[in-house]
Write a protein that binds this DNA or RNA. Structure first.
Lengths: 241, 241
DNA sequence: CGGGACATTGAGCGAAGTCAAAATTAGTGG
DNA sequence: CCACTAATTTTGACTTCGCTCAATGTCCCG
């Protein structure tokens, strides 16, 4: 087991098995080479450690190569709000571009690996390639849309709806990565789920219990199996009537 | 009074009195010219009309030149969730970049004017100017950070906190535009405030009543005067102890 | 003046929060 | 491997904030 925290070995999108999932999806060979030039290193982030913290100077975006992260912001009073969970192929750090300083903190929920993408170089590269430029814009726009979805959830859904929507969203992302969408191992604690979903840990626990009792999901600690995807979908859509 | 809905007259950022507030803030003369070339027209949007709707093909960003907008998304079941309010100098439409189709709808809350910024041309221009490119990235990043702030509010604040934070946020934006931050005319209905803040219209009304009773704000329909900014700030920060 | 949209206020209820305790799991060192 | 502690999760009892339903009030505009 190596404890090295960074390396330049094999840091090439063109040979990465995530290239269909990550930033370079569908890029031409030429553009891929440009991106390879921009990406400088790969880094390990152990469970509990951070890729970046609120207040850090922004220099790079990070692509999750393996593992699982949470991003959160903290109020002046010290309350944490988790704003998202990121896994393989997803990008971290776009919160820092605007001010040059990260407003969020990205912590690894399991031992993870990230690719460091120095933003100045990405900007240079994307000035030379319209396709790469478009891709960068798309990724940022999708983050905006993703957050709007969270607002939708926090703004008007009931506890059961929120949890159902959350599980479905995780399942969908698993599926996009080629895993069975029904079986999953939650990387985050009940506390983190509750924080993200805007409810207390007790309510999360009770809501899981209800879903289990109703036979919609099987719950064994952090292992979740979706037994009735359609029913879960119905719950997420707001089956109150 | 003209009813023309669009015009190419005087559509030049370089001569716009909002250039210190909008996308071109601090741009060089050369970059400003590039931006002027990209921006094609100005358009009127009457109260209740939309700049774009969910499902529309994305072609342009829009800068609010005058007026007030709300942006909202709608669930398959028909529930609307307002995701933001935009005023002078702010940009609309970044939700459409990712998919090529708008996910949100932008409606004018009062008769407004917008500048149309064809995105393809903005991308072209920003490939020629690192500064313009950076500015586009900044605007998108700030939108991401803004939405994170909304998540923070929806995720953990109480009704009174939310309303206080909302009023302060509006006041701050007024101030940035050179207006007295204490006096404001709300452009949105109680229903829209409630929708945005994740609470019912009745709770909005009651919370306004409480703030008024406590002497923190003066409320006369949609006219609000902040009487005790510090106290309002304390409430927004979560004065529960 | 009257009608419709919008806003306020009241009463009662319910979903989720709080407080508290028990149960289960994970981590640590002997 | 096991014992012991700490952390996490579950469950229960009670409280409360905000929602629902309903009535009343106010403004705007023809």
């Amino acid at each position: 087991m190596s404890t090295a925290s960074s390396s330049r070995a094999q840091v090439a999108c063109s040979h990465c098995n995530l290239r269909e999932l990550c930033l370079p999806v569908g890029l031409s060979a030429e553009d891929m080479a440009r991106l390879d030039d921009a990406i400088s290193e790969r880094r390990s982030v152990l469970r509990g450690a951070t890729a970046f913290s609120a207040g850090d100077r922004f220099t790079s975006l990070f692509a999750v190569r393996a593992g699982f992260f949470k991003t959160s912001i903290t109020t002046p009073e010290g309350r944490e709000q988790i704003t998202g969970f990121q896994t393989t192929g997803e990008l971290l750090g776009m919160d820092g571009i605007g001010t040059g300083e990260h407003s969020a903190t990205a912590s690894a929920l399991e031992d993870s690996q990230i690719c460091v993408i120095p933003f100045a170089e990405l900007e240079d590269a994307s000035r030379q390639s319209a396709e790469l430029q478009r891709r960068v814009h798309r990724v940022m726009s999708r983050e905006i849309v993703r957050e709007q979805g969270v607002m939708l959830m926090l703004g008007g859904m009931r506890a059961e709806q929120r949890l159902a929507a959350f599980l479905l969203s995780l399942a969908k992302r698993l599926q996009a990565r080629g895993f069975a969408p029904a079986d999953m191992l939650l990387r985050m604690s009940r506390e983190e789920i509750g924080n993200y979903l805007g409810m207390t840990i007790e309510t999360v626990s009770r809501t899981f219990a209800k879903l289990r009792k109703d036979g919609v999901v099987a719950v064994d600690q952090r292992e979740i199996r979706i037994l009735q995807p359609d029913e879960l979908q119905t719950l997420a859509s707001g089956a109150s009537c």
